[in-house]
């Protein structure tokens, strides 16, 4: 959840949210659609530099977030690159008594390609996430006319996540203080108890919150005054140049 905190602190926070979302999603779509290693590498470098250099997101934090899906990448990388077979049919074969784990050059190449593409996709999304607070992203969704009920639920859920996290953290600390996590078995039990009471707390709070909404005149619509962030001409131009560059690289490499 800290990512939101960094988004508020980012130097790019003052930019128009719709523009950042467009830039991010646009780049993401191009990375996926072009499926070209050079494009992916360019995106990784450029957006990484943008988030770290212009946005001033701490490098350590950025790397930690980028490495979250590492395990998924390794697991599925193996599955993509390797093949289980009764015959040693690949370029490299590892015998496992009953079958062979066969690695082929094309398989490895595909795995690497996919991984690079995945990292590029993440760079694009994290350019947005590290510079745009969640509520502004939800605001953009509202602008593109997603149903109001959905927007309302998203806004409320987002707010409540913080409340429940605080409650849960307190409960976990209290449980730790009473040695609730000493062993695997105790951990599971403690976790279940916390999850149970968290559920009760969340329902009770839900009722109180509804009262609070009503008392401020809630009438089925949650609306706020939002601060307008204007898109500057040079930013728009920069975005256009960036998109053009990505497309050019793709055309050039495709030949």
């Amino acid at each position: 959840m800290q990512i939101d905190r960094y988004a508020y602190r980012s130097n790019v926070n003052s930019w128009n949210a719709g523009f950042k979302v467009l830039l991010s999603i646009g780049t993401l779509c191009m990375v996926i659609a072009f499926d070209e290693v050079m494009v992916s590498l360019f995106v990784i470098m450029s957006l990484g530099a943008f988030t770290l250099g212009v946005g001033k997101t701490p490098v350590r934090v950025y790397l930690r977030f980028m490495s979250v899906p590492l395990a998924f990448m390794i697991c599925s990388g193996i599955a993509i690159a390797a093949q289980f077979s009764s015959l040693p049919s690949g370029e490299w074969n590892i015998s496992a008594h009953f079958f062979y784990l066969c690695l082929t050059k094309s398989g490895i190449k595909l795995a690497v390609q996919v991984s690079v593409k995945a990292i590029a996709g993440m760079s694009a999304v994290y350019m947005m996430a590290f510079s745009t607070p969640m509520h502004e992203i939800i605001g953009v969704m509202q602008k593109i006319r997603l149903p109001g009920l959905l927007i309302e639920l998203m806004n409320l859920i987002y707010r409540y996540i913080f409340i429940l996290f605080d409650v849960a953290a307190e409960m976990q600390t209290a449980a730790r203080a009473r040695l609730g996590y000493q062993s695997f078995r105790k951990s599971l039990r403690t976790f279940a108890l916390i999850a149970g009471s968290l559920f009760v707390v969340s329902l009770r709070k839900a009722n109180a919150y509804y009262d609070a909404l009503l008392s401020r005149g809630y009438d089925g619509k949650i609306e706020f005054l939002t601060e307008k962030k204007r898109l500057k001409a040079w930013q728009a131009a920069g975005g256009a140049i960036y998109f053009t560059a990505v497309i050019l690289i793709w055309r050039f490499c495709k030949r």
């Binding site: 509520h135 707010r159 609070a212």
Partner: peptide, 26 residues
Amino acid sequence: GFVFQDADSQIIAPTVAAEISFGPMN
């Protein structure tokens, strides 16, 4: 107007200014 005991039960908006605007908007 009713100021709740637990400020958290009242606060719903993403920024302070937006939060204060909720009542008047309604």
